[in-house]
Design a protein around this nucleic acid. Structure first.
Lengths: 281, 281
DNA sequence: CCCGCTTTATGATTTAAATCATGGTGGGTG
DNA sequence: CACCCACCATGATTTAAATCATAAAGCGGG
């Protein structure tokens, strides 16, 4: 692990006034005669980051692997890859921050990225995980509004970035790419709305089951997450996740080791997501 | 209300048994040897609905008023309006159901539409309200997946519909419309993610304040909703909303009459949304 | 190999909100 | 007009989950 290790929630919990802690600056803000705590978290810039390590054809290969650009012909691909730069990030480093101006649009070449938001009380909520070939930061870029959330590297990450303006002009003359983007956005919107419904109506047990299923659809049956991270995705506390996971384990739904969860029985998990077990009695 | 035949939502089709209760039909379905109760709602079809009441240029006028199509020239507008039909719906009637195949893409010409989802326990959750000039059902259409939620008329509603296939071909050659749609989807995605964060991290009081603010941004300071509807948007119970609204009223944040809420003090509402009052002590 | 730190684990207590219960109110309708 | 029904209101009770507390198990580094 590098010397810059970022753990947000613990640092924020007891904050009242601005201070530095573990690479972060945590501050408070007065607003309408009341004190509202805001957390602005700075991060150290990776001193070893280098640009333009990938050759143009390597970039094109990455672009081609992504859903959005996979339909382009060679000419368009090379034109686009000429616009790209690549950046690498160390584990835990933030690629952009909530409220940052939307300069870049990113495609993941290597590693995984989590997109998070912090509630007013400082709790972290993981909106999404993205893997190789997926894009992120796109909403802000297309709307030309500040990023609506922060993006953080999970493990070593290498991304390809395209400037907002360059991408807009590229897009204006490629309707098929625009249609792909509409597809991606539609899928994400649907996903977000499903989760919304779950949050509004369902119990934590069901939401947990839903998140585990969603993750295993994406990553297979072995999930490299701690209970803490799962809790941040489900929107609950670590203790509650640990308790429920213990129950799941007793019932043979999952197995787990430190920092890893193995899903053993997807059928049972689906049942848990669907209905309250009380119906059985 | 007119009593006529039912249109059966596709989710109901594979149900085994069911019974009526207070306007609902409660169905049971066997699934992995367990009984899961689903509450699905039948509705009457408006027997008086007529098609093609609007003339072509009236349709064009509606299209032009919407954000998505406002940039089109007259030629495109008239081409598009030729593809449209219009339908009217009575209060409470469903325009489409969750899981229905996505045949139509709609623009609201008159009235308001709410998009809802039902949780596995049958509770309704209102995902969004749309007014004149706004589109809905678009996610399903672009993805060619079943509608992810149901759309229900609030009051008398008239919509303009475009067939999925027609719209796709129209879109393929109009990148500027595609860009508009990307914008709209982006905004909705951002909105959904904000709400997700709120649901995960914040207390009901804050979520209620957030929903009231969101609605008043859209509709002005007089909101034509019952406590029940607000509860469905916040994802809580009617009683809780009534209690909190009473407190809000005592504090001078809102006034209300039957089925109507008047926002008196937006600043206080913003405070309520932001932070837990405990910080004061 | 020990020390410190993160993760996992589990019990006890508290609390926010759901649920249950009961009653008032206003507005439309036969 | 009286009746019903949807809406608003409030109290009492229950419950799911957060919070508080404590500790064991893994793992990594000096």
């Amino acid at each position: 692990m590098h010397d810059t290790d970022f753990r947000v929630p613990s640092a924020i919990r007891e904050m009242r006034m601005g201070y530095f802690k573990g690479g972060f600056v945590v501050c408070c803000n007065t607003y309408y005669n009341r004190i509202i705590t805001l957390h602005l978290i700075y991060h150290a810039i990776n001193p070893y980051r280098r640009y333009s390590e990938l050759k143009s054809d390597e970039k094109a290969a990455v672009l081609e692997r992504s859903f959005i650009f996979s339909g382009l012909d060679d000419e368009d691909l090379s034109a686009l890859s000429g616009l790209c730069i690549d950046k690498s990030f160390i584990p835990g480093e933030f690629i952009f921050w909530d409220e940052d101006p939307p300069e870049w649009f990113y495609i993941i070449a290597e590693g995984q990225v989590k997109v998070v938001k912090h509630s007013s009380s400082g709790k972290e909520f993981i909106i999404a995980f993205f893997g190789i070939g997926e894009v992120f930061g796109e909403v802000a870029v297309f709307e030309n509004n500040p990023y609506p959330a922060s993006a953080q590297a999970v493990g070593e990450v290498r991304v390809i970035g395209i400037r907002r303006q360059d991408f807009s002009t590229f897009l204006a003359s490629r309707p098929q790419v625009a249609l792909r983007i509409i597809n991606v956005l539609g899928g994400r919107l649907r996903n977000a709305q499903d989760r919304l419904r779950d949050f509004a109506g369902e119990r934590v047990e069901q939401r947990l089951a839903g998140v585990l299923l969603m993750l295993s659809n994406k990553l297979g049956s072995t999930l490299p997450f701690t209970r803490q991270e799962i809790a941040d995705m489900v929107g609950t506390t670590t203790e509650t996740v640990i308790r429920l996971m213990s129950i799941f384990r007793e019932r043979g739904v999952i197995r787990s080791t430190r920092g890893k969860i193995i899903i053993q029985d997807r059928k049972k998990l689906k049942l848990l997501r669907e209905g309250p077990p009380e119906i059985l009695h």
